[in-house]
Simulated assay, not measured.
Amino acid sequence: MALIPFFFAATTAYLFWNSVVPRQLRGLQVAFQTGDKRYEVHNVTKSVDDARNLLQSKGMRFGVTTYLFALTGVLILVFEFLMTKYEFSNGYHAPSIIIALLFIAIPAIISSGSSLGAQVVKPLGDGKATLQNSDIWRNYSYVVLTIAWMIFVAIIAVLLSSQNIASPRVFSICAFVAFSPAILAYGRVLGSSWQALKQSSQKIAQGQASPFHNHQPNAKQQAIAQIVN
């Protein structure tokens, strides 16, 4: 019975990754601002096959693996909850919960460390040999930064616990500090692209082509843009 959540989680994660994610990445674009309200837009993928090839490329494998770990961990928790709720199981299985939390926590820590490294570590140069050395140096730097950051979080936890602060509060504070680099990084990305996306959405809502959608929007796209605005 304890293996059933793993089976359903793995199956769902595979179907989601193999079918839903490539479709969502179809038509992926990258834009670079070249002036006031002017953007240079590049199409990265045009079809589902392009998206699958992108996800299977060498530079994407590590990110794909961590994403699948986190997705599987969440699904294990979901199926554990559903089985308990609908009385297919007498309760939660401790090994499943532990494994699910590890599947979620490890990618989260990696994401936080990568975000911290991306904001702290700078490339060494543009030459081929220099870039190769830079990649190795950056990888080691990311690992060291991640370990150092987690040690810092552990020190905060010890200090807070010594002040007789309630355990749930200590956990909340430490979790926020641990993942704050990722939160800040994603916030910066969203903030820097928000104005451009808003301008694009306004044009689509008016039935006009935008820098990111260089074609006349259909009724569905206009309706979605109206809701977003």
Results as ranks from 00 to 15, higher is better:
residue 32 F to D: 13
residue 211 P to L: 06
residue 179 F to L: 15
residue 34 T to D: 05
residue 134 S to T: 07
residue 120 V to Y: 01
residue 105 A to F: 05
residue 229 N to L: 04
residue 127 G to F: 06
residue 3 L to F: 07
residue 218 N to A: 02
residue 111 S to E: 14
residue 53 N to C: 09
residue 204 I to A: 05
residue 136 I to L: 14
residue 89 S to Y: 02
residue 57 S to P: 08
residue 25 L to R: 09
residue 112 S to L: 04
residue 211 P to K: 05
residue 7 F to V: 14
residue 94 A to L: 11
residue 211 P to C: 06
residue 111 S to W: 03
residue 82 L to E: 01
residue 164 N to W: 05
residue 90 N to H: 05
residue 84 T to E: 03
residue 117 G to T: 00
residue 124 L to F: 08
residue 59 G to L: 02
residue 72 T to V: 01
residue 126 D to I: 14
residue 189 V to F: 15
residue 48 V to E: 15
residue 61 R to F: 06
residue 85 K to P: 00
residue 213 H to S: 13
residue 207 G to C: 08
residue 211 P to Y: 03
residue 68 L to S: 06
residue 124 L to G: 07
residue 191 G to S: 15
residue 173 I to Y: 05
residue 71 L to W: 04
residue 62 F to W: 11
residue 221 Q to T: 05
residue 154 A to R: 11
residue 182 A to M: 15
residue 106 I to F: 09
residue 84 T to L: 03
residue 12 T to D: 01
residue 105 A to E: 02
residue 40 E to V: 07
residue 206 Q to C: 03
residue 57 S to Y: 09
residue 189 V to P: 04
residue 227 I to D: 07
residue 76 I to Q: 00
residue 102 L to A: 10
residue 102 L to V: 07
residue 12 T to V: 14
residue 68 L to Y: 06
residue 98 I to D: 01
residue 197 L to H: 12
residue 212 F to E: 07
residue 140 Y to P: 00
residue 28 L to V: 15
residue 137 W to P: 00
residue 105 A to I: 04
residue 5 P to K: 00
residue 54 L to I: 09
residue 178 A to F: 04
residue 48 V to F: 15
residue 151 I to R: 01
residue 48 V to M: 11
residue 78 V to W: 00
residue 218 N to E: 05
residue 8 F to D: 00
residue 15 L to S: 07
residue 58 K to V: 07
residue 180 S to E: 04
residue 215 H to W: 13
residue 98 I to E: 02
residue 221 Q to S: 10
residue 65 T to G: 11
residue 39 Y to V: 09
residue 221 Q to M: 12
residue 24 Q to F: 13
residue 220 K to T: 12
residue 6 F to L: 07
residue 47 S to I: 14
residue 182 A to N: 13
residue 99 I to F: 02
residue 114 S to I: 03
residue 57 S to K: 05
residue 124 L to I: 10
residue 227 I to Q: 12
residue 210 S to G: 10
residue 132 Q to A: 15
residue 128 K to L: 10
residue 211 P to S: 06
residue 178 A to Y: 05
residue 45 T to I: 13
residue 65 T to M: 14
residue 42 H to A: 13
residue 51 A to Q: 06
residue 201 S to L: 10
residue 25 L to K: 10
residue 161 S to G: 12
residue 51 A to K: 08
residue 67 Y to F: 09
residue 129 A to N: 09
residue 229 N to M: 03
residue 63 G to I: 04
residue 162 S to K: 13
residue 62 F to A: 14
residue 76 I to Y: 00
residue 22 P to W: 11
residue 16 F to N: 03
residue 73 G to R: 02
residue 100 A to T: 00
residue 65 T to W: 11
residue 146 T to K: 01
residue 62 F to C: 06
residue 153 V to R: 03
residue 158 V to N: 10
